[in-house]
């Protein structure tokens, strides 16, 4: 039984057959809905997330919230009731969802150029269809894509990734649900990969400070890899849409 519980086998493979520094497969698609201004679907391993962006639009319901110098960003995180192993009772509004919404807002506020849109509001809705570890990173990555699809100016991509420490010495990238359960401290990092800034960092357990550097380095490398994948998807999407509209209105 104890051999089953090992995070990394002797030959260096993890429970799902990945190596320590490998991401799960990421598949993504932009513009999946027609109703919102921007939308994206992202699959990271088995974790599946949908994101939709509305806005910038006039602040609805009480003008007191509107700000004269920048836009307000409103995030709502929700998990489908069928997304987890055990059926969830409330898809949103519980403590975990509220916390994740706030963290998401924090990550997105750091990149959106809100000063361009005074008196307006940007809504970001994220729905988890299948939760298999790394929900927060998947949500951040999906909402970045949705923002780009909506044509909202952002400074650069904001990407997130998790990392953990196996056998107390090897850092591992992109933790799945199975590995989360077995244990080990999970470090979640949301970063701006191009400028190397860290937007959000969170740990589930503690480990010795000496390990932090290498685990963090691994997580940041994960963010850079994620950015590469997202960038490719965005270029492909722009190329597709642009060539069917005939690059209308552009030189």
């Amino acid at each position: 039984m104890s051999t089953n519980k090992e995070l990394i086998s002797k030959i260096g493979l993890r429970l799902d057959g990945r190596r320590a520094n490998e991401l799960r497969r990421i598949r993504c698609k932009l513009g999946v809905f027609t109703q919102p201004d921007g939308s994206a679907y992202l699959e990271q391993g088995l974790t599946k997330v949908l994101a939709a962006v509305y806005g910038p639009h006039q602040v609805r319901g009480g003008r007191s919230k509107a700000q004269h110098d920048n836009a307000i960003v409103n995030c709502q995180f929700s998990m489908a009731v069928f997304s987890t192993n055990e059926r969830k009772r409330r898809p949103r509004g519980d403590r975990k969802s509220t916390e994740l919404s706030m963290h998401l807002q924090q990550a997105l506020l750091s990149v959106i150029k809100t000063e361009l849109y005074p008196w307006s509001q940007i809504d970001v809705y994220v729905e988890v269809l299948h939760a298999d570890g790394g929900i927060y990173p998947a949500c951040v990555n999906a909402s970045t894509l949705a923002l780009i699809d909506a044509g909202i100016p952002i400074k650069e991509y904001v990407c997130a990734c998790t990392a953990s420490l196996a056998n107390n010495d090897t850092p591992m990238l992109d933790i799945s649900h199975q590995e989360e359960i077995i244990g080990g401290p999970t470090l979640t990092v949301a970063a701006l990969p191009m400028s190397g800034k860290i937007v959000l960092m969170e740990m589930s357990q503690r480990f010795h400070l000496d390990h932090l550097k290498k685990v963090l380095e691994k997580a940041l490398k994960g963010c850079r890899d994620v950015k590469q994948i997202l960038d490719e998807a965005v270029r492909l999407h722009v190329r597709d849409v642009g060539s069917s509209t005939g690059w209308a209105g552009t030189g």
Partner: peptide
Amino acid sequence: LAAHRVNTSVAVNQRYPKIYTPG
């Protein structure tokens, strides 16, 4: 799932200008 959806866009020409992405 959205990932399995068929892309319905119709490419008119294969040449495309340089694309810039955020950042």
